[in-house]
C-alpha cells in the first residue's frame, strides 16, 4: 500500500471510514442518538454533521427499536444506513428488529431482498458505567444466522472493517470496545477494506495459541510479552470476525502449538470461547491437543460499579499469564 499512513485513534479511524463511505456513495447516511451536533456519546461521528449536513448525519429520537426498524426499511429500499447505538447495551431494546427483521428478511423472502445495513455498538466495561452501560453482548448477535458480527481491535481494522461492512450486501454488526476509542495506531489514508471473516495473527509463537477478541487482543499481547521472558512462546490470534468465524486459521495454529486459550470479555459461559473450543475439538486439531482447552471470560455477574470489582469481572493480564502457565505446565 503506497498510501500515507498516519497515527489515528480508533474513534478517528471509524469517523474517517464513515466520511469516505459518505463521500463515495450518496446512499450512505448515518443515524443514531446525539450523533449530530453533539458528535456522538463517544465523539465518533464528531464534526461529520458540519461536513455532511443533518440529512446524512441524522439525530434520531431515543427510540432504539423504531430507529433500528427505520434503518432496516431504508436499507431494503436502496439506501446504505450506518446506525449507531449509543451503548451496545441498548441493542436489547432493538432486538426484535435486529433478530427478527434484519437477520431474517432475506431468507424469509426467498432471497428476493438484501439488507445492506451497518450497525455500530460501543461496548465493553472499564468506564465505571456499571451494569447497563458496560456489557459485551456480541455473542447474542453472533448466534443469529443472517447477521455478520465483527470486533475490530485496532484503528487500522476499525476503518477497514467498517468500509468492508458498508460495501457488504448483508447486515453487519460492529462491536467497538469503548476503551479502544482513544487508542492510536497506524491508519492508511484513503479507501481500503479488511475482509470480513478473516482473523489476524498478531504474534507468532510455538507453545500456546491464544484466540482473543477486541480489547482482549491487547491484554493477550501484553501477557505474551511477559510470558516470553519466561520462555513461553505464545501465538495470539485476533479473531476480528465472530460470524463468519475463521475456524481454519485457529485449527492450523492449534495443530502447531497443541494448546488453546480463549480470551474474551463477554460472559464466559455459553459464549464465544465455547464456540471456538468446540470448533477445535470437532476438528483434526483435537488429536494435536496436549492440554485441555481453557477459557477466560467475563464473570457470572452483571458488571459492577466499584472499579476493583469491575476489573475483577473481566480477564486481566495476570489472569491470562496464569492461565497460560497452567496450560504449558509451568505454574509459578
Amino acid at each position: 500500500m503506497d498510501a500515507n499512513v498516519r497515527e489515528l485513534s480508533y474513534a478517528q479511524a471509524i469517523q474517517e471510514a464513515m466520511a469516505i463511505a459518505m463521500e463515495a456513495d450518496e446512499r450512505v447516511f448515518l443515524m443514531g442518538e446525539d450523533i449530530g451536533i453533539y458528535g456522538g456519546a463517544f465523539q465518533v461521528t464528531g464534526d461529520l454533521v458540519h461536513r455532511f449536513g443533518e440529512d446524512r448525519v441524522m439525530d434520531t429520537p431515543i427510540s432504539e427499536l423504531g430507529g433500528a426498524g427505520v434503518a432496516i426499511g431504508a436499507a431494503v429500499t436502496g439506501m446504505r444506513p450506518i446506525f449507531e447505538f449509543q451503548f451496545s447495551d441498548f441493542a436489547t431494546l432493538a432486538m426484535e428488529q435486529i433478530v427478527n427483521q434484519a437477520a431474517k428478511m432475506r431468507y424469509m423472502l426467498g432471497g428476493n431482498v438484501s439488507v445492506p445495513l451497518v450497525m455500530r455498538f460501543p461496548a465493553g466495561s472499564g468506564t465505571g458505567a456499571a451494569a447497563q452501560h458496560s456489557q459485551s453482548l456480541e455473542a447474542w448477535l453472533a448466534h443469529v444466522p443472517g447477521l455478520k458480527v465483527l470486533q475490530p481491535s485496532t484503528p487500522h481494522d476499525a476503518k477497514g472493517m467498517l468500509l468492508a461492512a458498508v460495501a457488504d450486501p448483508d447486515p453487519v454488526m460492529i462491536f467497538e470496545h469503548k476503551l479502544l476509542y482513544k487508542m492510536k495506531g497506524p491508519v492508511p489514508e484513503g479507501h481500503y477494506t479488511v475482509p470480513i471473516g478473516k482473523s489476524e495473527t498478531r504474534r507468532h509463537g510455538r507453545d500456546l495459541t491464544i484466540v482473543a477478541t477486541s480489547i482482549m487482543v491487547h491484554k493477550s499481547l501484553d501477557a505474551a510479552a511477559q510470558l516470553a521472558e519466561e520462555g513461553i512462546d505464545v501465538e495470539v490470534i485476533d479473531l476480528r470476525s465472530l460470524r463468519p468465524m475463521d475456524t481454519p486459521a485457529i485449527i492450523e495454529s492449534v495443530k502447531k502449538t497443541s494448546r488453546l486459550l480463549c480470551v474474551y470479555e463477554g460472559v464466559k459461559t455459553l459464549g464465544i470461547g465455547a464456540e471456538i473450543s468446540a470448533a477445535i475439538v470437532e476438528s483434526e486439531a483435537f488429536d494435536y491437543l496436549d492440554a485441555p482447552v481453557m477459557r477466560l471470560g467475563g464473570a457470572e455477574s452483571p458488571l459492577p460499579y466499584n472499579p476493583e470489582l469491575e476489573k475483577a469481572a473481566v480477564p486481566q493480564v495476570p489472569d491470562i499469564v496464569a492461565a497460560a502457565r497452567k496450560l504449558v505446565c509451568k505454574e509459578a
Partner: peptide
C-alpha cells in the same frame, strides 16, 4: 416488502422505506 410475523414489526420498516 412483506407480511410480518411480529405484531407491529413492519411499522418502523415502512417508515424507513418512506425515509428512502
Amino acid at each position: 416488502l412483506g407480511a410480518n410475523g411480529i405484531v407491529g414489526g413492519g411499522i418502523p420498516i415502512a417508515v424507513g422505506a418512506a425515509l428512502s
